[in-house]
Amino acid sequence: MQIQAAEWFMLLLVVAMPVYSLWESDKVKVAIIEGRKTKLRAYKEAIIFLWIPTSVLLALLFSGRLSPSELGLVWQGNLSNWIGAGLVLAVSAYFFYSIYALLSHPEKLDEFRDAAQNSDWMVPATSKELRWFTLGLSVSAGVCEELLFRGFIIGVLGNVFGVILSLVVGSLLFGLCHLYQGWGNVLRTAIIGLVLGIIYILTESLWVAIALHILIDVYGGFIGYALHKTKPVASEPKEAVS
């Protein structure tokens, strides 16, 4: 099977995403910290950034150049699909219980506080930011990144380059797209991408990977919001008594 011109163009767009992230590096982070950009604006820009290449992919899909089955968008109702659905339910239950437990015992959030310092600049701190992060950015990331890095890279190009190579390359590109979170998170995100890719392959459904991706991001947003709401307020130094 040979790659068609439209698929080469789509691949170029996907590769351009981490290249752009490398060029941007920590500019967004610095702008938010310095107050030159709000988190809401950063969320909206990220949503647009994700949907530009995804719109091209969807255009190829609706024009018939790519099929839903190639992207893993056909629910076959087989055992693999239903195991994937069960996994989504199990992860949903775990995240729901975890958030409930943390909100019931705020002191447990201290365990997350140190680990979350590097991402404090990007997680939602207000209810409006939380809505945009969960319903806007998290859903967009789950849909767009899975379509691009799993559905297209693995589902379509895997037929040409092999599933294993496509899985590894897709995971690396996915990780590099998150360079704005720091190099440490690039590795962590690449590993998450690798796991999502394996789940996609084993369950034979991109819907499972999309749902899990959204759940992971929404969970992270709620944890970040809870950390902000329970952040200790530094007490002002007492005046010396003369």
Rank of each mutant, 00 (worst) to 15 (best):
S63R: 14
L79R: 13
L227G: 01
G84Y: 02
H228W: 12
V14G: 01
E129D: 10
L40R: 15
Y225I: 04
E7I: 08
V195I: 07
A125S: 13
V28Q: 08
A115W: 13
V143Y: 00
A240K: 13
P124E: 07
A141V: 12
H178W: 03
F161R: 10
Q4Y: 15
G184S: 06
L89C: 01
H228K: 08
S242W: 14
G151Y: 15
K29L: 10
A93Y: 14
L71V: 03
L109A: 00
E111C: 00
S55W: 07
S140H: 10
G158I: 01
V241I: 13
L109S: 06
L148R: 05
V14Y: 01
V169K: 13
G158N: 06
V160D: 12
G77K: 03
I47R: 00
A226Y: 11
V88K: 01
A85L: 07
E7Q: 15
F152Y: 11
L22K: 15
P232N: 05
P106F: 10
L137A: 08
E145K: 02
K44N: 12
C177K: 11
V160K: 08
V233T: 07
M17R: 05
Y200C: 00
Q117G: 02
T230P: 05
V143E: 08
A16H: 12
G184T: 08
L58I: 01
E239M: 12
M10G: 06
L40F: 14
S25H: 15
G151V: 12
G184N: 08
N78K: 09
E34F: 14
F152Q: 07
